[in-house]
């Protein structure tokens, strides 16, 4: 297992990159400008790409270099570009009516991180990994998951929801790079392409929303009830 005997340097590098990604998801949580979400998401994807490369280097998984490059290209450049194109077509550039103030959202996000830490600690203890980077990887994975769900719940611009969904995926991807670097390459590749298709689908749907519903705020979607 890679995480059981890591050099201190590698361990701190992994931790640094994981924490940077977590902080960037807080940036997304605390901002109300769509552009800021996008930049934070792109930066988060670069951090994850760097993490893939670092895991590949220290753990001797050469195929992770390929994953790192593809992550950079897909998650770091292509997806933000596609979303930027969607944003450019919209008339809104920020969340207009907040369900939850960004400051309150940050506090809730912090609580989520604590919860995630408690769960991860318990999980890592099952394998006596409390003192390794596994705890941090699990914490970041779970808390990005929770933060993504929070973003889905309290943001109502269509684009913020798409980005919330991508944060969910980023969290899983980040965790899997540290926890299961040996996962079959094919799966990771297909998941990357899958993400691309998802974003294209969302692009089409957002344009449908614009033409047929007249708003991209999901608060307007309340015809179907009961």
């Amino acid at each position: 297992m890679l995480i059981q005997h890591l050099s201190p340097l590698a361990s701190s590098l992994f931790s640094l990159l994981a924490i940077v990604s977590l902080l960037l998801s807080f940036v997304m949580l605390g901002s109300r400008w769509l552009k800021n979400y996008l930049y934070a998401f792109a930066a988060e994807s670069w951090a994850i790409a760097a993490l893939s490369a670092a895991v590949g280097y220290y753990g001797n998984y050469p195929e992770l270099y390929l994953i790192a490059v593809l992550t950079l290209l897909f998650r770091g450049l292509l997806l933000p570009y596609l979303i930027w194109r969607i944003i450019r077509r919209l008339e809104v550039d920020r969340e207009i009516r907040e369900i939850l103030q960004p400051s309150s959202a940050l506090v809730i996000g912090a609580l989520f991180v604590m919860f995630a830490l408690a769960v991860s600690y318990r999980l890592a203890a099952e394998y006596n990994l409390e003192l390794t980077v596994a705890v941090l990887a699990l914490t970041v994975m779970l808390s990005m998951k929770l933060i993504g769900f929070l973003m889905l719940a309290v943001r109502h611009e269509a684009i913020s929801q798409v980005l919330g969904l991508l944060v969910l995926e980023n969290g899983i991807f980040l965790g899997s790079q540290i926890l299961v670097p040996g996962m079959p390459l094919l799966i990771e590749l297909v998941i990357l392409f899958d993400l691309l298709i998802i974003v294209v689908c969302f692009g089409v749907l957002v344009s449908y929303l614009l033409t047929h519903v007249g708003t991209t705020s999901t608060l307007g979607l309340k015809r179907l009830v009961g």
């Binding site: 993504g148 269509a158 969910l168 995926e169 449908y208 047929h212 179907l224």
Partner: peptide
């Protein structure tokens, strides 16, 4: 392509994608 069906499609892809990402976490 009427407002209702677009709304249904949006809710569908949003809820199911978010839900199924939990399945991916479980798979990992």
């Amino acid at each position: 392509q009427v407002a209702e069906s677009i709304e249904a499609a949006w809710k569908y892809i949003m809820v199911v994608s978010a839900g199924i990402s939990l399945a991916l976490l479980g798979t990992i």
